[in-house]
């Protein structure tokens, strides 16, 4: 049985720029930075509060991708179409203030949502993430159904 998420993966434009963003702007820890013989670089970071979790930062290209595949991924990144998910925080508004002061680009300021307080930001490769302070009913399926399904059906 799977117990929890260990590694999530996100494409980035440049290893050094991405590492600087996650470590300096978001306050993540560097978890691993290893260059393999075939040129593949295993670069992972993670929030200090989640010591067992790694976010792998990968530049599209060889040896994993042919040039056409890499170009397609770069185009999707440039369009801002990719996301690697949602981060949790104990205080969305405080974290927003901290990150915005460091120059993190927010698409949406903290706002009350049915599941808590949420903001949306991009990393410096164009990937977007939610920043969530979840409330008590975030995992209450009935409450979420009422919040999101009402008004959409006759």
């Amino acid at each position: 049985m799977i117990t929890k998420m260990g590694v999530a993966s996100v494409f980035v434009n440049d290893y050094e720029e991405a590492k600087a963003f996650f470590v300096d702007k978001l306050g993540f820890e560097l978890r691993s930075d290893v260059q393999m013989e075939n040129g593949f670089r295993w670069l992972t970071v993670g929030p200090p509060s989640s010591p067992a979790f790694q976010l792998a930062l990968t530049v599209p290209g060889p040896p994993m991708h042919d040039e056409e595949t890499a170009a397609s991924i770069r185009a999707l990144m440039a369009k801002g179409a990719l996301s690697a998910g949602a981060w949790n925080t104990d205080d969305c508004r405080k974290t927003y203030e901290e990150y915005a002061a460091r120059g993190v680009e927010f698409l949406q300021e903290p706002a009350e949502r049915p599941y808590g307080v949420e903001a949306v930001f991009r990393d410096n490769s164009g990937n977007w993430y939610s920043l969530n302070e979840l409330n008590d009913q975030a995992f209450d399926q009935r409450a979420m159904a009422e919040a999101f399904e009402s008004g959409t059906s006759e």
Partner: peptide
């Protein structure tokens, strides 16, 4: 593909501004 990517970056700036 750099020119195409630069165009996409430019229109994304516009789109993000609309979202903000």
């Amino acid at each position: 593909g750099t020119a195409a990517v630069n165009t996409l970056l430019a229109v994304r700036r516009a789109r993000d501004m609309i979202d903000r």
